[in-house]
Design a protein around this nucleic acid. Sequence first.
DNA 1: CGTGAAACTTGACGCACATCAAGGTGAATT
DNA 2: AATTCACCTTGATGTGCGTCAAGTTTCACG
Lengths: 229, 229
Amino acid sequence: MNQQSRLNKEHYRPCVSLVPLFNHLDKEQMNYIVGLAHSATHPRGEIIYSDGDVSKGLYILHKGRIKIYRLSENGKEQLVRILEPGDFTGELSLFDAKPHDAYAETLEPVELCVIQRDQMQQLLQDHPSISLRMLAEFSTRLADTEQRAARIAMETADTRIALYIADLSEQQRQMIVQLPMSRKDLASHLGTTPETISRKLTFFEEQGWIRQSGSKTIEILDLDALLLV
Amino acid sequence: MNQQSRLNKEHYRPCVSLVPLFNHLDKEQMNYIVGLAHSATHPRGEIIYSDGDVSKGLYILHKGRIKIYRLSENGKEQLVRILEPGDFTGELSLFDAKPHDAYAETLEPVELCVIQRDQMQQLLQDHPSISLRMLAEFSTRLADTEQRAARIAMETADTRIALYIADLSEQQRQMIVQLPMSRKDLASHLGTTPETISRKLTFFEEQGWIRQSGSKTIEILDLDALLLV
DNA sequence: CGTGAAACTTGACGCACATCAAGGTGAATT
DNA sequence: AATTCACCTTGATGTGCGTCAAGTTTCACG
């Protein structure tokens, strides 16, 4: 193997070797999958797929961030989730042959791989361990989405925002949390408006429960009070 | 094989032979799974598992209906979904070893099977086709839940109710639809209150878009008008 | 490093819908 | 068939938060 082809291969490898879906496989299996994957890069602000598009396969994110969102009847945006490196998307069309039901848009310059539907299905057939990883991922994603739906339906805006910050804090294991998105996106994720987010955060700060520095950093001063609304 | 044991086996069989998760397997494979499954019956109104319970395994519903719901911080109920015969539940704990995050309560007398966690995981390892079925089920369930969250977040109560009826009509392929649950449950599913459901349905009827007969039957007279809110 | 467009904040206003209440209807259980 | 309890409906009232608007800050990009 000459220098050129090795470099070439290295270019594709991280998509396979780094992501949880594949990183437990042995070297040979990974090499095979590397051969299936098509690599691509996208600049910030680009739409990878749209509602109604037919699926190109499974997208596996290796670098950068992607937001997945839906548009409601009246044209409002609802942010479903944000993909971090190692996450994948496009799964609905993998099994149903249905077109996408959401939009995927890059938040930053992105590197990703695509594995085509047929080949991915074959992989799942041949490697039960991949299926199990995917099932595990789906089940937590499902639980998260159900919880989000329940909160939007049953909790007030204060509570949703407070719970979101608390979840972030637990996830990042810090009392100083970084919001991973803009007010607008956060609002659409939590089923409210940017104005309300602003107001509630100001209110939390006035109560001495948090301290804001910059629009994305929040220091939690009194978690218990926060969780009591 | 004597009469007794054959009857005994028949008792367990439908859980395996009827449900989509298994009904594509051959006779021998099914027999094996039948051997793993523990059968159980429950009267109406019984709680099968609660939020916080550790998992007994995968529950496969064979007869009757079960509602899955969550309780919010302030004690309000959110209906997540209703299981029909052939559906399964308890999947979160299958992969995460996490306790349940919701409640399962029978709406009618119920017959179901339980397959224990370890054995189910082995099945998924040994039979990729089962994994694929489960992945397909998860992906549609995920899409449904995301859509529900988006609607609760972005649409008005009228629209949510109208869309729900329209979905039911498409699903049941009829212009006369049967609501599968009480106002209370429907309200919690759609993120509103029984009073609002009552009022909106009355309004729809006054507009001549629907006709109600009994509290569970709705005839759609003007679907287009309904979908314009 | 400068600049223009987003993003963010704060205020005023209105309304959709939750809440509380009370009466009517239906269905499950005996 | 009677009784009871849950479900459903309709009305009156209050309010959380969405909307519109205007000013300020931030930051992406040339």
